[in-house]
Every structure is written in structure tokens, then in C-alpha cells.
Design a protein around this nucleic acid. Structure first.
Lengths: 201, 201
DNA sequence: GAATTATTTTACTTGCAAGTAAGTAATTTA
DNA sequence: TAAATTACTTACTTGCAAGTAAAATAATTC
């Protein structure tokens, strides 16, 4: 089962959810300003104004979208905690999350998109995005720090700094990959993994 | 003197150049779709239609913008070659390039922006962006490979892969930094530098 | 200094995205 | 079963960004 990948399995035929699903996909593919209500309404077989019924404005749609991403992260972390998932496995799940992005129309992650558009998105959405990124960073720091304590990872310096490197490199790799069509994500994952598993003493 | 940083020192009072300068700044701050002709015309004290005289369409403006970035990279590399700049110094210049982006309104680099907007920018501009990124990657590979041969850098694996990691991490760090307001770029630079200077045998 | 060329403005058109208001059909609830 | 609620549609308005054509102004050249 895919980690933070989205799409609940219960086919609820719920327009609101379908709007959110499509908006999320388009957001990852084109950014917040890159899709319109018509882009969502069309494929769903409804009129653009129908979107306004579920989300009064695009801002609400954007916020709901990021909140759902945050929810998924929270749930995934709760799942890891309750199942005592080994740290390397948690890290691998994180890599899989980026792989999933890469496979779906070569999407890039929300952090990258939001960084580009940050001046152009509604303020309340900016706040959500900053929370998301903070939570992702925290999660990564935890995995690395605890994993090192457990003897699973080996690296020098503070976990915060290594976590920053990981998040930056993974996000950047998705973007390189989208532009070049090459498999930079796997390259970067391999480099990062090597840096964590092979101790440099 | 700043490496690929832009802005010629000769104050030529040339509208075309000023348009290009402002467009580049806005592009780095908000992306291609994030600025309009009015955003450029206003500060320049000119009407939007004047831009069309110099650049018939936004597409031409976008292409000229990326071509100029490519030119600067080419010139910088030529300068390094003719001055036999040491490889660590070249790498440092590259870091400075990203630092410059970070300092100027927390801009992000063209690669990141283009990756997000790639579906929404004109095709001819996509081609330019792909050339730019290819040239940056090539440059990075050369610096790392030659620098390792010269004994300046120490790392395992292929230079191509390490170069990919560097470009991905630097671009990603700029984006993290813009969103969090923290100094992720320096963190990532330090991590990357450590990985190149301290051999892991 | 007249003619030419370069640059810019004025005054449009087109198109699209967001949002609104009123209305309708189907479903639920009292 | 009448009233209310849900989930829409139709038909608009507003605003902005891009682009165009023609006229006006400034700079050059002959």
C-alpha cells in the first residue's frame, strides 16, 4: 500500500472528493495558478460553477488540498509509530513517496511548487504550506536521528542538517527529472542512501 | 565580481535591456506566469505596449531571458578556462551563484521555476530551458571530474551522479529557504562541500 | 531641415479565469 | 406531502493579461 500517495480506496462517488483529487493532481502537474475551475469541471462532467458550491473560492480549494496532504503525512507517521516500522523502512517509504510523484505524470512535490508560487498564492494557503514543510522536515529529522541512534544509519553532523539535504535533494531531483526526462531521482536516492548507510567513520 | 549574476555595469539606458533585467528578476521571483507586461512597464515608466515593440510576444521575452542565462554560463566557463581557475574556486563560484539567488528577494533558480511551469511555458522556451539545465549539469560534471583528477575533490562513484546530487540539492535548498526563511542553502552547501572535501575513502 | 527610422503611446480587441445570483431538479426531513 | 436542503446549471459580471493597429513623438541621417 502506497504511503502518502493519496486516493482513498473507498469509491465514494463524492464530487467534493473528486474535485479535490483532480485539483491535487493538477496542482502537482502545473502549480496553483496552472489550473482553472474549468480544468476540473470538464473531466468531472460538471460545470465550473459547481466547484464553487463545494469550495467558495479557489483559496479554500487550495487550503483543503494542502490540509489533506498534511493529514496524509500525519496518518503515515501515526501508522509508522503504531506499527513500530523500522527506520530504514520509513526512509524507504519516503523515497517511495517521491517515486510516486515521479511516476505520475512526472509531478513535482508541493514544496517545490509552493516555493515558486509563494508570492502568488493566498496567504492562508502559504501558512498551510509552511506547516506542511515544517512537518516533513520534522519527520525526516526524527527518522534520521532515531535511525542513527538505533544503529541503522551512519552519518556525521546534526540530523537537522542531513534532513535538510535530503528534502532539498529529493525535491530538486524531481524537478531535474521532469525537465530532462532522465532518472535523476533514482540517482539522487542512491547517492543519499549511500551517504547514510556507508559510514564515513 | 559576481559570477553568473547578471546586470552589466555599463549603464546603457537601453529599454530592451531594462525590460529583460526586470523580466528576469520577476521570473526568478514569481515564475513565467507570475508577471505581466504591466508589471514590467510600470516600474520602467513606460506603457505595456512598449514592451511589444522590443519583444513581439511574451514567448520571445521568455526565450531571450533564458538565452541570456545560458550566455552568462558560457561566458563564465570561458573565463574559468582562460584563467585556469582552480576547480574548488569554480565550485565556490557556483555556490555563490545560488547564494546570490537567495539574497535577491529569496529568488529560486530558473531550473526549479521551469520544472514547475514546464507544461505552461511556450515550447521554444522549454527547449532553451532544457539546454540550460544540460549545460549546467555538464559544467558541474566537468568541475567535479577534473577536480577529482587534480586531487581537489574526493568522492566515490561517477561525477555525473554527484553533479546531479549537487544541482538537485542546491535548487531544492533555495526553495526550502524561500518557504521557511531559514538558511537551508548554507546548510546544504556545507553538507555538499563536506562530502566532496572529506574523502570517505 | 526634410525625410527616414526608432521608439512609444492611445485606444482598442480578444480571451480566459474567478466569482455571483437566480433558478431547477432531486432528495431528505418533518 | 409540503417544506427544506442538497447539488447542481444557466447566465451573467468583473477584471486582468496578451496582443494589435494606428497615431504621435523623438532621434538620426542625408
Amino acid at each position: 500500500m502506497m504511503w502518502l500517495a493519496g486516493k482513498s480506496m473507498t469509491a465514494r462517488r463524492d464530487t467534493r472528493t473528486e474535485v479535490l483529487d483532480l485539483a491535487e493532481k493538477l496542482f502537482h502537474e502545473r502549480g496553483y495558478r496552472g489550473f482553472s475551475y474549468a480544468d476540473i469541471a470538464g473531466p468531472l462532467g460538471v460545470k465550473p460553477a459547481a466547484i464553487h458550491y463545494h469550495f467558495p473560492g479557489k483559496e479554500e480549494l487550495g487550503i483543503a488540498l494542502i490540509e489533506r496532504l498534511r493529514d496524509r503525512l500525519k496518518n503515515a507517521l501515526a501508522h509508522f509509530a503504531s506499527h513500530q516500522t523500522p527506520w530504514p523502512k520509513q526512509l524507504e517509504s519516503l523515497f517511495d513517496y517521491y517515486r510516486h510523484h515521479a511516476s505520475e505524470n512526472c509531478a513535482v512535490c508541493a514544496v517545490g511548487i509552493s516555493a515558486i508560487e509563494v508570492e502568488g498564492i493566498p496567504h492562508a494557503m502559504q501558512i498551510q504550506v509552511r506547516l506542511l514543510i515544517k512537518e516533513m522536515l520534522n519527520a525526516m529529522v526524527q527518522i534520521l536521528a532515531r535511525g542513527r541512534d538505533a544503529g541503522d544509519f551512519h552519518f556525521e553532523g546534526r540530523a537537522e542538517e542531513r534532513a535538510t539535504l535530503l528534502l532539498a535533494a529529493l525535491g530538486g531531483a524531481l524537478q531535474l527529472q521532469r525537465l530532462t526526462g532522465m532518472s535523476q531521482l533514482e540517482t539522487v536516492i542512491a547517492e543519499l542512501q549511500h551517504g547514510l548507510l556507508v559510514a564515513d567513520r
